[in-house]
Design a protein around this nucleic acid. Structure first.
Lengths: 234, 234
DNA sequence: ATTTTATTCTGGTCATACCAGTAGTACAGT
DNA sequence: ACTGTACTACTGGTATGACCAGAATAAAAT
């Protein structure tokens, strides 16, 4: 069995989801002024603390603009959104990605991974290889979700060894959607494929063979792309 | 004159900055448990609402982990941070970027821009070219800040024409630091250089010459890299 | 030593209140 | 007609104090 950890949503989280839905569905129009916190609190039967906290979170996500002592306004998330916005949109779609979104993610992943290995070949330490080898083995876990998580961790650690401070941060930003993709990929093709791809990359990295490493990355993802249509149909 | 908009910081913002400094400076060690909200509120002479709101914001930024009914713990921002973390680090350094951070940004920018033009060559519409040409001219603005903003807008719109939904989002995430870089670059070399680089890219794009377009991007940024040391010393 | 129970502590939430800044209005002075 | 003032209603930011349910830990029972 794999009983997953339970977590009750807080009122603030419920409020945030509710408003995200209303904005993404268009029920709340862009530029529109929200009712005051007091009114919202009364209408939704929660305290003002929940409303206030939820609103400031939505403001940080790029959905709302708070003008103190004036009011709260709906922002154009297509213009002011960041990567976090994508996660909200995804979540709104019931955790599913559209086909063009999958393709977008893979296009990004390939250049990020390529840069990671390209830099890592020159900059990694022997200790990095050791820890990467450990993470590599975790991909063979029978539990699909754990294997997907391990795959994410492997590539994340790989990005760390590039010594580029931003690469891991970017990787981290896309954790949720990439994890979804991996779960679907492993379900269809098994974790052995993922394992072998990663193993080849690591091997080339250890040999400091830059060209070979980049080639491995390209092959690993082009496999994903060719399979992405099927994944989408699944 | 250009009178800039005044804005008084709120207590929550002060609290967030204070804690970010303590974490980034190492005064608060990773894994350490923070005092309870009540204690913090008393010590810092503010209400619990401020502490509670500030903590949840820091949690969303990847600096803290909130375990309800247990406590608040300092997270390893290098491992769990997102792109937002970079902005905080930058802000902590008085708005300045360290040399390795500049290099990291440029390494990212080159692959992002390359992907943008690579995809755009096949996917852009004639209207895209028209609007890009308009943004291009804005780079010639004498006001340095406006020119930098225009440069950002040009590359952002370029990313939009790639039809990759994530590329613009990534671009926006890096708006602040990239803008800083451009201001410093233009101050040193003038906006004419930026204008010509962009113009060449656009020209190759219009001719659907993928190889030439990518070459232009590489040249534009390698100029920046070679100048980055000087920028850093400035 | 292990399990059960009781106590303390914590963040999440609620209710109420006051403050300072915004925005609109009406009005006085020019 | 325009400007500046005074008043007023409303808004988000903050303060205070309280209660809840779950987590952590100590105390008690087995």
């Amino acid at each position: 069995m794999d009983f997953t950890k339970l977590k009750a949503p807080t009122l603030k989280e419920l409020f945030v989801r509710e408003l995200e839905s209303m904005i993404l569905s268009g029920k709340l129009k862009i530029g529109e002024k929200l009712p005051s916190e007091r009114v919202l609190a009364e209408k939704m039967q929660v305290s003002r603390a929940v409303i206030n906290g939820g609103i400031s979170e939505l403001a940080r996500k790029g959905f709302l603009e708070v003008k103190p002592r004036s009011g709260v306004y709906v922002l154009d998330y297509r213009r002011y959104g960041t990567v976090e916005t994508l996660l909200s949109i995804m979540n709104y779609n019931g955790g599913h990605l559209r086909r063009d979104e999958i393709q977008s993610i893979l296009e990004i992943k390939i250049i990020v991974d390529k840069l990671a290995v390209e830099l890592s070949v020159d900059r990694h330490s022997p200790e990095d290889i050791v820890s990467l080898e450990a993470y590599l083995e975790d991909i063979l876990n029978d539990n699909v979700e754990k294997a997907a998580k391990a795959a994410f961790t492997f590539y994340h650690e790989l990005a760390m060894t590039s010594q580029n401070t931003l690469l891991p941060l970017i990787y981290r930003s896309f954790r949720v959607p990439v994890n979804h993709l991996w779960i679907r990929f492993i379900n269809k093709y098994g974790n052995k494929v993922v394992y072998n791809s990663a193993k080849n990359i690591l091997k080339a990295l250890k040999n400091k063979d830059k060209a070979k490493a980049i080639e491995c990355v390209e092959k690993a993802i082009s496999d994903s792309i060719s399979g992405s249509k099927e994944i989408y149909e699944a």
